[in-house]
């Protein structure tokens, strides 16, 4: 070994084109003489490639079709400053019905397209509740319904 290893996260920065100037020159010089850092860089590159190659999910077509339906809800939401007051508006029921219908349709389409045959066995995120849409009310997101009780205002 000819010199101290550089901080490891610099390898990711180099890979992402986020390293410039003297830092970049110094790291490249180090890489030319350090097999272990070069190997580390190569494996990071492979991870990046695996992620980049993963197929992109598209917004469900149903959403675009249903957008005019959903829009009255969005329109009214725009006028309300907080979640608590948003959900006390009288457009809530039609909005929920529209959301439930659109969710039911998309769920039916997804099921029939067999897009998610592994959904049950995957259980990808054990900490997240996954609602089963058996009726209109259960089609509501736990995120939405839970936020009804806990108004949060962290977004910009």
């Amino acid at each position: 070994m000819t010199q101290e290893h550089e901080e490891e996260s610099l390898l990711s920065a180099l890979l992402d084109g986020e390293l410039e100037g003297p830092e970049r020159v110094r790291l490249q010089k180090h890489l030319s003489s350090c097999a272990s850092c070069s190997l580390e860089l190569e494996s990071l590159r492979k991870v990046k490639t695996i992620l980049a190659k993963a197929p992109q999910k598209s917004m469900p077509a149903e959403w675009t079709c249903d957008f005019p339906l959903a829009f009255p809800a969005l329109k009214n939401a725009q006028k309300s400053p907080s979640r608590a007051s948003i959900f006390s508006q009288n457009w809530l029921i039609p909005a929920l019905v529209a959301a439930a219908v659109s969710f039911a349709v998309s769920f039916w389409v997804f099921q029939n397209r067999s897009l998610f045959p592994l959904r049950q066995s995957l259980s990808l995120n054990a900490n997240i509740q996954t609602p089963t849409p058996t009726n209109a009310s259960s089609a509501l997101s736990p995120i939405i319904s839970n936020n009804l009780n806990q108004p949060q205002d962290r977004t910009p």
């Binding site: 939401a77 997240i128 910009p156």
Partner: peptide, 23 residues
């Protein structure tokens, strides 16, 4: 990718649009 499945993604997506439009 964040939520790990289509159902949660759909909920998250809709909630995001509601919030985005309100702001």
């Amino acid at each position: 990718r964040l939520s790990g499945n289509e159902q949660d993604a759909w909920d998250l997506f809709q909630e995001t649009l509601m919030k985005a439009y309100s702001r």
